[in-house]
């Protein structure tokens, strides 16, 4: 197992490096000249050359990458073109805001989705299964910005029990989970965000549980005299590596922040920041955000791999 952990970490490193190269290349992949936004339209050739030199664009690309990476490793992503603030502050501030949504959305979505899927998978074809499967399809196919708007109309506009958008008057910096006057702003975005993961996890769990239940060893367990509860424990343990893989992806998406949901609720998270950065062609912010989110994905995958290996001994040898 120890060897497996080391190997997985070593595998994750080249992926992280690959991700950083892609992020760096954004400057060149984005259409148009990266300097276009910084320079005044009437800049002289001389000014352009100076600015180019300042940003390091006059050096060979690999050198630029090495310098950029060296700064990134030290936590320096440069400054936002739009706000002139350090990118690190912008990225981590927004990532923290999104993480606050995820902090609630992840346990709610994972527990609900897993429970729904497990029940449906244990009673395939029964009423309960049909209800769960139907609900999962609705959860997955409802456009969540639409759902967000409906929730706002019902709970914020009609009944006025919950705020419609933003983070409240204390704002992003002073936001406290322990004050209802702040925390109430979380409710509607969290509910909206959980719908798709609940649907996807419920469907995956149902399929995995139903598949495991049809395997022969389940008959052996019954032949051993085990009761239904004990059998279900075996089935869930067998089904969980598959479910974990999907949960990892959903965790990544939730940490990435939904551009649509965060925009609907004007929640200053990473989705919101990405949206702003794209509109402003704020390449340093884009690079920083995407790199940070990608690393969250890589780390999540690593954790999922290790969890899967603890649950299923056959994986450890692969």
């Amino acid at each position: 197992m120890f060897g497996y952990i080391i190997r997985r970490i070593l595998f994750a490193l080249p992926i992280a490096i690959g991700v950083s190269i892609v992020c760096f290349s954004l400057v060149y992949l984005a259409p148009g000249d990266p300097l276009q936004t910084v320079l005044p339209p009437d800049a002289t050739a001389e000014t352009i050359a100076i600015v180019k030199h300042e940003y390091g664009f006059d050096r060979p690309v690999p050198v630029q990458y090495a310098i950029w990476l060296w700064h990134v490793v030290q936590g320096d992503f440069g400054r936002s073109i739009a706000s002139r603030r350090p990118v690190t502050l912008e990225v981590f501030g927004s990532l923290a805001n999104t993480a606050m949504l995820a902090l609630f959305a992840v346990p709610v979505a994972f527990a609900t989705g897993f429970a729904m899927g497990a029940i449906a998978g244990c009673y395939p074809g029964r009423i309960l299964d049909r209800i769960v499967t139907g609900a999962a399809v609705i959860g997955v196919s409802l456009p969540n910005y639409w759902l967000g708007l409906v929730l706002v109309i019902v709970f914020a506009v009609e009944y006025m029990v919950l705020p419609a958008s933003g983070m409240g008057k204390s704002g992003s910096a002073a936001f406290s989970l322990w004050r209802w006057s702040d925390a109430q702003f979380l409710v509607l975005p969290v509910v909206t965000l959980t719908m798709i993961p609940i649907g996807i996890i419920a469907r995956t769990t149902r399929a995995a549980v139903a598949e495991v239940r049809s395997q022969e060893f389940v008959t052996t367990l019954r032949a051993m005299g085990l009761g239904e509860g004990a059998v279900i424990r075996h089935v869930l343990k067998n089904a969980s590596p598959q479910v974990l893989a999907v949960m990892g992806l959903q965790f990544g998406y939730l940490m990435g922040g939904s551009i649509l949901v965060e925009t609907v609720f004007t929640w200053p998270g990473s989705g919101f920041l990405l949206n702003k950065a794209i509109i402003n062609r704020d390449i340093p912010v884009l690079q920083g955000t995407i790199l940070a989110l990608s690393l969250v994905f890589v780390a999540t995958n690593l954790v999922v791999d290790l969890l899967q290996a603890t649950l299923d001994p056959r994986i450890r040898r692969a």
């Binding site: 022969e216 008959t219 019954r222 032949a223 051993m224 005299g225 085990l226 075996h234 001994p313």
Partner: peptide, 23 residues
């Protein structure tokens, strides 16, 4: 349930698939 395993027991044809792979 006490009867299964306690009074009657079964050996299956394929021991690979008849045992829980993660136990």
């Amino acid at each position: 349930r006490s009867f299964r395993g306690g009074t009657v027991a079964m050996i299956f044809q394929e021991p690979m698939t008849a045992l829980d792979p993660v136990y």
